[in-house]
Amino acid sequence: MKPGPFDYIAPAALPEALRLLSDTERDGKVLAGGQSLIPMLNMRLARPELLVDITRIPELDRLGVDADGALRIGASVRQSTVAADPAVRAGWPLLAAAVERIGHPQIRNRGTVCGSLVHHDPAAELPAVALALDARFTVARAGGSRTVPAGDFFRGTFTTDVEPEEIVTEAVVPPLRAGTGWAFRELAQRRGDFAAVGLAVLLRADGAAVGSARLVYCGVGGTPVRVPEAEQALVGREFGAASRSDAARAVGAVLDPPGDVHASARWRREAAEVLLARALTEAWERTT
């Protein structure tokens, strides 16, 4: 279990990194924390000719809140840094909670938030959270950059909107409106494993009723799966057992999860309903 041969370059500036990736002679791949890529290299499931290490580019290592109150996470910012950041914990607790469910601390000390998002394992926590939080991505290529909202970003299993010659330079997460309740729950057999089913919930209260709801699953499809039918079952109704079970029923009717070595499709659908009921209660308690 050793990687096949490749070249490695760690440019000091973004334009150089983009130029290397646009070289059509060589199959280049971005390396940041490497915690998803290097296992695939070791198993020879990935065979790039060139790794472009972007962690030596100072401008990609920034983490902070911009003038609009949005959280900006640079491409080489480690997961452990994000989870420990006081501003993130205060303003984006859903994100912090989800990051803490990624693998193990030893993985998060190397792995990056943007790397996990671009890798897009459908069982991973962050894509679901990015979709729930309406995150957007700055995608750079030689000669320009574009912004892609999370809703357009995740295309399919291990596939995103990012082209091989592009780099996601940052993830931008808008501020949560004050009073939003949240919950992140997942079921995995062992601590630290990818979620067999995971769920990010955002709720706003409107008196005793639900003002708005956002429900996004991971582990139940090729991309994170938002369930508007279940959201609609909640919004405008008094929060309680009736609306919760209607929402759960909507989830059961809509989801078409895959079966694999960790769980059958049927279990995933059932577990998704159970998670929903439990996560809604948790999120509702956090609304103010």
Partner: peptide
């Protein structure tokens, strides 16, 4: 592949997998 942890070393003070680090 980063699961067993036997290869864990400290890198700049924090534990990391040396098998998942070039």
């Amino acid at each position: 592949h980063g699961v067993c942890g036997a290869c864990t070393v400290l890198m700049d003070g924090v534990p990391v997998r040396s098998c998942l680090t070039l």
